[in-house]
């Protein structure tokens, strides 16, 4: 924590390190790519203005918290204008469109890691993930389509998440 504002270079470095993760977080909350960009911009303006009040050790959590507050404020403004947000599931097309392909290499590396991790899953777990994310099917529908009990579909999803967590953490 310092008394003076962070230097532009420091904010740039924080942006390069965290913007991609924060953007994904915002997409999860707002489910709208345009609003995500707006919230991300507002977040890093706050970092520029008030980032010096956060400790280095807790900076990442502080940035995410600011982002969440920006997202909630944006959502309230939209809802006041009659627009309903956060009540839609993530759209796979929006996910692809929102992929920030022009981002720094580290962002693409993270996505590549995730794609590799998905490819390494057993095919039946990949199927459940695909049906859930890209086909927007409920677990009951997935179970019915695969001809397995609901518990099996849920277990496959949990196993997939467990493996992905291990893979991404490593």
């Amino acid at each position: 924590m310092t008394d003076s504002k962070l230097a532009r270079e420091q904010v740039d470095a924080l942006y390069r390190r965290h913007a991609d993760g924060v953007h994904r977080f915002l997409l999860g909350v707002l489910r709208n790519a345009d609003l995500c960009d707006e919230a991300l911009q507002a977040t890093f303006l706050q970092v520029l203005e008030k980032g010096h009040t956060a400790d280095d050790e807790t900076m990442k959590g502080w940035i995410y918290k600011v982002a969440f507050n920006q997202a909630m404020a944006l959502r309230r403004r939209q809802q006041a204008g009659g627009r309903v947000l956060g009540q839609l599931a993530l759209d796979p097309v929006a996910l692809r469109e929102a992929t920030r392909s022009d981002e720094q290499v580290i962002a693409n590396e993270t996505l590549d890691q995730a794609r590799d991790a998905v490819r390494e899953l057993p095919i039946e777990q990949q199927e459940v993930l695909r049906m859930r994310f890209t086909d927007s099917k409920t677990f009951a529908q997935i179970a019915e389509q695969l001809g397995v009990p609901l518990g099996t579909a849920l277990t496959r999803m949990r196993l997939a998440l467990s493996k992905l967590r291990r893979k991404l953490d490593s």
Partner: peptide, 17 residues
């Protein structure tokens, strides 16, 4: 918060894959 970010990453990866 990071878990939400990770799930969106996963959703993106699955969509692209």
């Amino acid at each position: 918060r990071e878990s939400v970010s990770r799930m969106v990453l996963l959703g993106t990866a699955v969509s692209l894959e």
